[in-house]
Every structure is written in C-alpha cells, then in structure tokens.
C-alpha cells in the first residue's frame, strides 16, 4: 500500500491534472483503490493542495519574490512554533522553514515590487518582539522550481525517427 501511495504521489506531484482513470491504468491499480488512497492522503495531510506551477516572469504583471533570513529568540515552552505561526499567517508570506545553521527561519515573501516587500519587512516582520534580526534578498530570476526548469524547457527530440 505504501508503494502505491508513493507511486501515486510521484505522478501527481508533477501532474495533478491527470484523470483518475489514466492514473489507475498507469499504476496497474483499480480506479476505486486510487481514488480511496488519494482521499485518505488528503485527510491525513499528506496531500495538502493542488497548485499550478507558474512562471510569473513570463506574465506581464508585477511580482517580486524575496527570501528573508530571520533570527529569533525562541519562547519558553513554545520553541519556534509561536513565532513561526505569527509569521506564516501573513498573506504575503509564501513559505516558512525552520533552519539549522546561522539563522532560524527562512521566509519567502511575494509582493508587487521592492517597496511593498521592504514595507512589509520593516513594518510587520522586523518589529515582532522575538525577531532579533532580518536579512532580505530579492530574487532576480528563477531557473528551476519544484523540479521543473523554468528556462529553455522546450527541447526537440533529436533521435532518429527509426532505429533498430
């Protein structure tokens, strides 16, 4: 069962639009079984959503992403959970990770422009009580995301049409 789950996840991780019929055929399983496993994994929090991978750079609109390294003072009895929660609840925040190493939290933020992100950092993040320092890095270009290269993805099939 664990194998089937892993196989399902490996396929839908890169193609969440696949039909249940096709998924079942490709994995050699019953459609009902596949649907049941997916439903169960949704309930168990294994599958947390179905996103679309978008290269916003190719859209004519303003989007800026920044990575922010944050040092915090962990709170007694709460560790990092409380402060992480205070941060991830902001809509502007895309992801939050607790890190090993020289700082504590990595936060990805998306905004319309640099000014909007700066404002957010100065007005919302930096003043938080347990935040001791922040370092903000703006993303200039995204080359690869979620295992998919975002640049020069089209590649011709260079093989001969027929080969023994």
């Amino acid at each position: 069962m664990k194998d089937l789950r892993e196989d399902i996840l490996n396929v839908i991780e890169t193609n969440s639009r696949i039909s249940m019929e096709e998924l079942a055929v490709r994995l050699g399983a019953d459609k009902e079984q596949v649907v049941d496993e997916i439903t169960a994994m949704e309930k168990e929090g294994v599958i947390c959503g179905y996103n679309t991978l978008i290269n916003w750079d190719n859209m004519d609109c303003d989007k800026v992403t920044a990575l922010i390294e944050i040092k915090v003072t962990p709170q007694r009895g709460q560790g990092f959970e409380k402060i992480a929660e205070r941060i991830y609840k902001f809509d502007e925040v895309e992801s939050v990770y607790l890190m090993s190493g020289g700082y504590d939290l990595t936060v990805f933020i998306r905004g319309k422009n640099m000014k909007e992100i700066s404002n957010f950092v100065w007005n919302k993040l930096a003043p938080l009580e347990s935040v001791t320092s922040t370092a903000t890095y703006f993303v200039l270009k995204k080359y690869k995301e979620h295992g998919v290269a975002l640049v020069n993805t089209a590649k011709e099939d260079e093989r001969m049409l027929i080969a023994p």
């Binding site: 099939d157 093989r159 001969m160 049409l161 027929i162 080969a163």
Partner: peptide
C-alpha cells in the same frame, strides 16, 4: 522504409530503439 520515414520530418515516431 527507413529512408522514407527519415524524410518525413512531421511524422510522429514510435520507431526508436533508444
């Protein structure tokens, strides 16, 4: 047959052994 195929650049191929 190979010669004909290799001239048809717009064909979809299921003919490759690699």
């Amino acid at each position: 047959f190979f010669d004909i195929v290799n001239e048809m650049t717009d064909a979809i191929s299921l003919g490759v052994g690699e």
